[in-house]
Design a binder for these strands. Sequence first.
DNA 1: TCCGGTTGTAATCGAATGATTACCACAATG
DNA 2: CATTGTGGTAATCATTCGATTACAACCGGA
Lengths: 217, 217
Amino acid sequence: MTSPAVDEARAETGKRLSSEERRRQILVAALAVFGARGYEGATTDEVARAAGVSQPYVVRLFGSKENLFLAAIEDALARMLAGFRAALADDSPQDPDITPEKAAAKRIGQAYVDLIAVRGLHQTLAHAYLLGSHPVIGAAARQGFAKVWRFFRDEMGLDADESRAFMAEGMLISTMIGLRIVDDYGSDPQITELFRSCFPTELPHVLEVLPRGTDRW
Amino acid sequence: MTSPAVDEARAETGKRLSSEERRRQILVAALAVFGARGYEGATTDEVARAAGVSQPYVVRLFGSKENLFLAAIEDALARMLAGFRAALADDSPQDPDITPEKAAAKRIGQAYVDLIAVRGLHQTLAHAYLLGSHPVIGAAARQGFAKVWRFFRDEMGLDADESRAFMAEGMLISTMIGLRIVDDYGSDPQITELFRSCFPTELPHVLEVLPRGTDRW
DNA sequence: TCCGGTTGTAATCGAATGATTACCACAATG
DNA sequence: CATTGTGGTAATCATTCGATTACAACCGGA
């Protein structure tokens, strides 16, 4: 016999879902948890509770924690590249004072910052980029990084130097997010100035889109 | 009665050390292990074995794993700032074709890359920068990051924009190191080109100073 | 209706890990 | 030579966590 609490919870949150839809839910939760705690620090139980399912089900749907992480970074990269491609293809009326290339670069930079709204996405990727010595995850992380690089060079048409500068800015932004600099923004004057300097133009948008305060993540 | 093996090992590796010296040894080991595995992924036992002591001794000297990590990032930051200050003060004959400011920037960039030789230093700091949501480590990481920022602005005299660009390049370099891009350098043509583009000038030096191959770290 | 596949959980297990405890060895000191 | 402080370890404990197992609930079709 199932406990009444369980049945009640199921009635509240809705019926059974297709495994494909559960997968997507769990991936969203996984990005948030892996982003906040890192690969080793995160637990499958935390992911499960964030997704509203039991821990064994997470393991069964993805096979292992390692596979879940691989799926999470693949999902994150796919979202990122989709956002980049949409920004690149965007042909809404543009400022005639700047070249089309500059305009595209601005849009793509904006798309990168917008991904902050996908909780944990930037942080999870940054964690993956630090796991180079892991035999499986390391290889996947390198390939993922190279994929983004190829987008800048082949699809966006940047030269090597521009690509490097672009990615460098991206890594800085990721770092500031991972540091949760926003938490001290406004209270610590040093941090406030640092943050202002690092987001000279995007600052209002970042403050708007980034969760703050006592939030656990 | 102590086991003969232990006595033998102690005889081999030398006598008892002062706790201060052991601390330093353990910090060196901690940077390597934390850098490769991250804060959660690293174990105090791994650090202990890398330092040639027993696991309980590591815990006793530092109180807890958390304190060990805090000491490690403090040590890493101190080394980094010491390297920066030495590079800034360096007044060896310089190329008259570039301004003194440019020359200093080049020297400090070089000092940053040279820190690759301190195994795990860049990676450990990068891991710390991703732990912003950790109540204790997060605060320390933010303060450490701000400290580096203040060096660029106050001691080196960069303006906000130059500081940002400088730190961005640093974050990119850290990422490449954490990814262990070198592991695929020469074998994977995509990665090789990516690496060449990101280290246009420092490449030979990086290849020389960065451990490669089947090395565990 | 019953039956097989799919969605999902409870219970539990074994391994890993940070920490604690109790102890040992050595050296300086009086 | 006793003693006391310091450097160090072996043994072990309590938790935590990923994974496994066994089972339950639901649903569509023959």
